[in-house]
Amino acid sequence: TTKIQIRLADGSRLIQRFNSTHRILDVRNFIVQSRPEFAALDFILVTSFPNKELTDESLTLLEADILNTVLLQQ
């Protein structure tokens, strides 16, 4: 498993454990389930350093190389 910290656009944080085989789409779905107010918003996930937009949501967390990292919601 891996721990992902997500810094949300409103300044708050979410921390969740995922399997390395989960997909970026699963992280997006977790955000929307945790904070339904973001469901209607068009947002992207970005790595904190170096900044990289995670546009291919079909990638696993392992394939995207974002295990144990911080993601930013923009």
Rank of each mutant, 00 (worst) to 15 (best):
E57K: 05
Q16G: 15
F49G: 15
T1V: 04
L41C: 13
R28H: 04
T69L: 03
N29E: 11
T60G: 00
R7A: 09
Q16Y: 09
P36C: 07
N29C: 00
T60K: 06
D42V: 10
D10S: 02
T21M: 10
L62Q: 15
R28W: 01
L62R: 13
T21V: 02
L41H: 14
R23Q: 03
V32M: 08
L67Q: 13
L67A: 11
D26G: 03
V70L: 08
Q74R: 15
V27A: 07
L41N: 09
V27P: 09
T55W: 10
S48F: 05
A9V: 15
A9T: 15
T69W: 11
H22T: 12
Q74Y: 08
L72R: 03
N29K: 07
Q5A: 13
I31A: 11
E53H: 13
F38L: 09
S20H: 11
L25D: 05
V32P: 03
T60R: 06
L14G: 01
Q5I: 14
V32Q: 00
F38V: 05
N29A: 08
L72S: 01
V70E: 15
A40M: 10
I31Q: 00
Q33Y: 06
E63C: 08
R7T: 03
R35V: 01
F49P: 12
R23P: 06
S12I: 00
S34E: 11
L59F: 08
V32E: 06
L25S: 15
Q74D: 14
D56P: 05
F38H: 07
S12Q: 05
I66G: 08
H22Y: 04
T21Q: 14
L41Q: 13
S20R: 09
P50Y: 05
T55R: 12
K52E: 07
I24L: 05
D10C: 00
T1E: 15
F30R: 01
S12M: 01
I44M: 06
E37G: 04
K3L: 13
F30Q: 00
V32Y: 06
L41S: 11
V32S: 11
T55L: 09
T47V: 01
I15F: 11
K52V: 11
N51V: 14
T47F: 00
T1A: 01
L71M: 10
R7N: 14
D65T: 00
Q73Y: 08
T55Y: 08
L72I: 15
E37I: 05
A39D: 00
L8E: 06
E63F: 03
H22G: 03
K3Q: 09
R17M: 09
A40V: 10
S34K: 14
R28I: 04
A9W: 11
S20K: 14
R17H: 12
E53R: 12
Q74I: 15
S12G: 01
R17Q: 11
Q73H: 09
R35Q: 00
L72T: 12
A40P: 08
I66M: 07
D10M: 00
L45R: 00
T55A: 07
T55C: 13
L61S: 03
L41F: 12
A40K: 12
I4N: 09
S58Y: 03
R35P: 04
Q16P: 00
G11C: 02
I24H: 07
E57I: 10
T47E: 04
I6N: 04
F43P: 07
D26N: 03
A39V: 02
L61R: 07
L8G: 03
L67C: 15
E53N: 05
K3T: 14
H22L: 12
T21R: 05
E63V: 02
R7V: 14
G11I: 07
I31F: 06
D56C: 03
R7P: 02
N68L: 01
S58P: 01
I31K: 04
N29T: 05
I66C: 14
F18P: 02
T47D: 09
F18C: 03
I31W: 02
L54G: 05
D42I: 00
N29Y: 09
R23C: 06
D10N: 10
P50G: 15
S58A: 02
F49C: 13
N68I: 02
K52C: 12
P36G: 01
R35Y: 08
